[in-house]
């Protein structure tokens, strides 16, 4: 009976049936674990839910509160500071390293592995090591070097102006290995004959870089900008582990949106407000990603 039914199906129907059978686990997973909570948070953001008592619908009150909240705006600014500093700096460094590493034959694999190791290392462990690096003399490596050079010791993580870049540095460093590997793959994918033709045509190194390498790397660059932008917008581990009490201090100077959401939700248990912030973060990520995908398609 069942086999008869199966045999009566056309080949494309059978293919579709099997495709769906194999897709079901992933579809279920995404629906229950990802899509449902995502949509639910939109609802929670319109309530005053505090994890214990019943959630009451309060309209856009959480969003109105956000506009009035100076900490939210501080955090909002910090998040974009991570993004606008982190993405370009890390991409430029990664490109320069990949560009020259591609030309290095000596111990190529070993050097590439060295660059990749931070990407494989736990962010927490790295954050703590870097936290020590930033300590005052005699513990902190950086201040030891500065004092050995006869320069003034720097407060680093204790300063409201230096703390954010100090936290950004290991975050950039951690992502570098991945970006370098992707850049090298992109550089390798450009046919040699383009460079040979350019050499014969008399193009200089700079013209080749500007007119051939970088334009042809455009898909790679857009991909890395998207990935690293999302990474910097969601920065959390480094800040949580490198600031005292994990509070994004001093004076909220390093606190990113994700950390603020975490505090609002799980320290203050103000789930409605936390959800509203999450929705804002979601929208920012969405806009940036769509914008960048559009740029990619423009090629």
């Amino acid at each position: 009976m069942v086999t008869g039914f199966y045999h009566r199906m056309s080949i494309s129907q059978k293919l579709a049936m099997w495709a769906w059978i194999f897709l079901i686990p992933a579809v279920l997973f995404y629906s229950i674990i990802r899509f449902y909570p995502t949509f639910n948070s939109f609802w929670i953001s319109l309530t005053d839910w505090d994890l214990l008592s019943e959630a009451n619908f309060i309209g856009f009150e959480n969003y109105a509160r956000m506009l009035q909240d100076p900490v939210f705006w501080k955090v909002f600014g910090n998040t974009f500071a991570y993004l606008f500093l982190g993405t370009p700096i890390s991409l430029v460094i990664a490109f320069v390293v990949a560009y020259y590493l591609d030309q290095v034959r000596f111990m190529h694999g070993f050097i590439r592995a060295l660059y990749f190791i931070p990407f494989l290392t736990t962010a927490v462990a790295m954050a703590w090591v870097w936290r020590w690096f930033y300590q005052p003399v005699p513990i902190g490596v950086f201040n030891n070097v500065l004092s050995a050079l006869g320069m003034e010791a720097q407060p680093f993580l204790r300063s409201t102006t230096q703390a954010l870049p100090a936290i950004l540095a290991p975050a950039i460093w951690a992502g570098l290995g991945f970006q370098i590997v992707i850049f090298m793959a992109g550089i390798r994918a450009i046919p040699d004959s383009y460079y040979e033709a350019a050499r014969i045509d008399g193009a200089g190194k700079w013209q080749i870089l500007r007119e051939i390498t970088i334009p042809l790397l455009r898909p790679t660059i857009v991909f890395l900008v998207v990935i690293s932008s999302i990474g910097f917008l969601r920065i959390f581990d480094q800040v949580f582990n490198m600031t005292p009490q994990g509070d994004g201090g001093p004076l909220n100077s390093t606190k990113p949106l994700v950390l603020y959401i975490y505090e609002t939700g799980f320290d203050v248990f103000d789930m409605g407000y936390a959800a509203a912030q999450t929705v804002v973060l979601f929208l920012i990520l969405l806009v940036i990603t769509l914008l960048q995908l559009r740029l990619l398609r423009a090629t």
């Binding site: 004959s193 383009y194 040979e196």
Partner: peptide
């Protein structure tokens, strides 16, 4: 060149 080596973005 055999593959012409034309720059696709130009």
């Amino acid at each position: 060149f055999q593959n012409y080596a034309l720059y696709p973005h130009m």
